[in-house]
Design a protein around this nucleic acid. Structure first.
Lengths: 196, 196
DNA sequence: TGCTTATCATACCGAATGGTACGAAAAATA
DNA sequence: TATTTTTCGTACCATTCGGTATGATAAGCA
């Protein structure tokens, strides 16, 4: 892939992805245009097309970047071997925390899922992929707890995972919309109390 | 307001509102343009501006129309005097039902709330107004149940109302996105099981 | 020093958006 | 009939969108 001839590439793929991811995450999918991303990433539009093929390709790449560098890090909490409640509390705190503009509010995956019907084909596939990745992580986590006898509910691990993911996603949406974080936390805690 | 002189008005305000409401509700706020609504309602763009002042005014009016003609009818279920569980089950069934394209999926209020940050000023105010109207209806319902001893929980009626509304809104969003209605129903039932 | 190769970015495209200027049309009034 | 009043809709505005044609530019290679 690395050309030995021709004008040397100046386009910084990582920087562009970082800019695109943050823009979509922070300002919303439908709000940010390609032109705006080009401006922020200091990249020409044809350059962006050469690298990503178009808006659909860029969004797909941005979400994949998010999965690898953001979501993956968060989901590591599920592998610490802590108890059900400890892990849930950690996640609740993390989700409802509103740092001082350090990290964008909410979750890019959630926002893209909410806008899914208006996305390009490649992006839609990536959304499904990343969602399944997230869901699988939670399912595995609950199955392990089940084997250790720390999660014995009437629900299956699969359903419980879907339930938990749905509730966290709802909370993340509310946080992204500026809802009061204490209220969101209370609602989330209540919803997750059914897990015992 | 009814002019005695001048060219008689042919613009049908009710029809236009109905068209706009259905369009926003069915196709999404950001997807439908003024031009498209003009086409569907068979109204000229200047005519629409004369009647509603612009996109913001039209959205506001469309949501007010929704509150009066759709939401209001649904919330009447809260006044039937049925038990907590009976009423909840009715609402769950109603929310997760997917008629054959008769009624648009989801809830216009929910969709507008989700897009709230990108709406005009007047529409935002109407969103807050309609949301408070909905929240008040649920709060009052729970307070009545509390007085009758049919809802004795550790939560306050106010918080429980917020919780219930949040869960129903989440379900409506999922339905609107084409999520499997049985799954949505299961999640919603689980979430509302904490009310006893 | 040419020639090839690959990336660069300006400057454009058609389509769509929200919004408006303006003259024609249709009624009541004088 | 002539005037006033009100609503009508065509035709336009500037802006932005996603996307591209094209020629300049900078490297390796012969």
């Amino acid at each position: 892939m690395t050309a030995t001839r021709g004008r040397p590439k100046t386009l910084d793929r990582q920087k562009t992805l970082e800019v695109a991811m943050t823009a979509y995450w922070q300002d919303g999918i439908n709000t940010v245009s390609l032109n705006e991303i080009c401006r922020r990433a200091e990249v020409s539009k044809p350059g962006l097309y050469r690298e990503f093929g178009g808006e659909d390709g860029l969004m797909k790449a941005a979400l994949a970047h998010y999965q690898q560098h953001v979501l993956g890090e968060i989901l590591k909490i599920l592998d610490t071997g802590s108890s059900l409640r400890e892990t849930l509390d950690s996640l609740i705190t993390m989700v409802t925390k509103v740092d001082g503009s350090e990290t964008p509010k909410g979750c890019l995956l959630v926002k893209m899922r909410d806008a899914r019907l208006h996305l390009g084909e490649a992006t839609q596939q990536q959304v499904d992929l990343t969602y399944q990745y997230q869901l699988a992580a939670f399912t595995q986590w609950l199955e392990h707890l089940q084997q250790r006898g720390e999660f014995g509910s009437t629900m299956t691990a699969t359903f419980a995972a879907t339930y938990v993911v749905t509730q966290f996603n709802q909370a993340l949406t509310q946080i992204a919309q500026g809802e009061d974080s204490e209220m969101v936390k209370a609602i989330l805690t209540t919803a997750l109390s059914v897990l015992g």
